[in-house]
């Protein structure tokens, strides 16, 4: 990585292409935050490569004035893996969606996460297929009525955070398209992690699934419904006069109202290195009244695939020297006529 600080403004990361997302789409906000964050990371602009698959979110690279590769459905993770393995000097970002990353590309996502290739995955989750005009996705709630599920979806949905945990992911966080500052902080933090940083971004598709997250994230609800996880801080949410927190209850966490019986000091402190706690937080069900957890669920130190890949090549080269082709061809049994 280039360590020389480079001064950029957000504008330097805006491409000259007309943006073709629907007006009001949550992707605009995400694009804006990513451009702002990239400008501030201190990395030379030419070192960024954004790789995407297919879907609305995957148009992302065209709108960034960086290197970008808009690949095929579900395979951005595999293309990005090949890129990072041969070019460890680059900062590689995968932009994908709930369909691209968890349905057609679910297999590659699982293997990327377990391998822990050092790149950042931004999974835009709008719980719908937008580019194909509104079918249920693998994160759509059961019973969802769409053009392809007129009587309601009978697919049990994926929980992307729990999926990532199950894949052995070393960094998992969540933010929301409209939480501009939180999203910027989340992206900045994800970038510092060595290994695959999996960031779920809850995003609104205002055409085919408008308001999918409103009951948790809109201005009316967010103060009461969103749990901002911060490492070392108590797991609490709600407004000053209506505050809740998680206390330890046996081997589980239990939501309690704070103020009378319980105080903030009784609450569990968030520990992003605790896999059990991360699992419990990942499985909170906001549709059942639980808060929506945002921030970093989990982080672990795990060797990265790309560094081990490079190390093996370097070790072989230092042990055996640069390959001698003539010697290689002449190896094994030879005879001279």
């Amino acid at each position: 990585m280039n360590t020389t600080p480079v001064e950029y403004s957000k504008k330097d990361f805006m491409s000259d292409q007309t943006i073709r997302w629907c007006p009001g789409c949550g992707d605009y906000s995400i694009l804006s935050q990513v451009q702002t964050v990239f400008a501030g990371l201190g990395l030379a602009k030419e070192k960024y490569a954004i790789v995407s698959g297919i879907g609305c979110s995957s148009r992302f690279p065209y709108y960034m004035n960086t290197y970008g590769f808009h690949t095929i459905h579900g395979r951005a993770t595999a293309v990005a893996t090949g890129l990072k393995l041969t070019r460890p000097d680059l900062s590689v970002w995968v932009v994908t969606g709930d369909g691209d990353g968890l349905s057609i590309g679910g297999n590659h996502m699982a293997h990327l996460l377990r391998r822990n290739v050092d790149l950042n995955v931004l999974l835009f989750n709008n719980r719908i297929y937008g580019l194909t005009k509104g079918q249920y996705s693998p994160t759509s709630e059961i019973g969802k009525k769409t053009k392809s599920s007129p009587m309601g979806s009978i697919d049990h949905p994926f929980n992307p955070i729990a999926f990532a945990l199950g894949c052995g992911s070393s960094y998992i966080s969540r933010s929301v398209d409209v939480f501009a500052a939180h999203l910027r902080d989340t992206l900045t933090a994800a970038n510092t992690h060595s290994g695959t940083s999996f960031v779920e971004i809850l995003q609104n598709c205002n055409i085919f699934n408008d308001g999918a997250w409103d009951s948790m994230v809109d201005k009316e609800h967010r103060d009461g419904r969103v749990l901002y996880m911060e490492h070392g801080k108590p797991l609490v949410w709600g407004s000053e006069d209506n505050k809740y927190g998680f206390i330890l209850d046996g081997l589980s966490i239990k939501p309690v109202k704070l103020g009378e019986t319980y105080q903030e000091t009784d609450c569990v402190l968030h520990d992003k290195h605790n896999l059990i706690l991360a699992t419990m937080l990942a499985n909170l069900d906001p549709s059942d009244g639980a808060p929506l957890a945002v921030g970093t669920f989990y982080q672990s130190a795990k060797s990265t695939y790309d560094s081990m890949f490079s190390t093996q090549i370097a070790d072989a080269t230092s042990r055996l020297g640069a390959g001698d082709l003539a010697k290689l061809l002449n190896s094994g049994e030879t005879w001279t006529v």
């Binding site: 095929i72 595999a78 293309v79 990005a80 893996t81 090949g82 890129l83 393995l85 070019r87 293997h111």
Partner: peptide
């Protein structure tokens, strides 16, 4: 599919 896609990513990187 991942095998060929990773190869394409590698070509993209040079």
């Amino acid at each position: 599919i991942a095998a060929v896609c990773a190869a394409i990513g590698a070509s993209y990187g040079g």
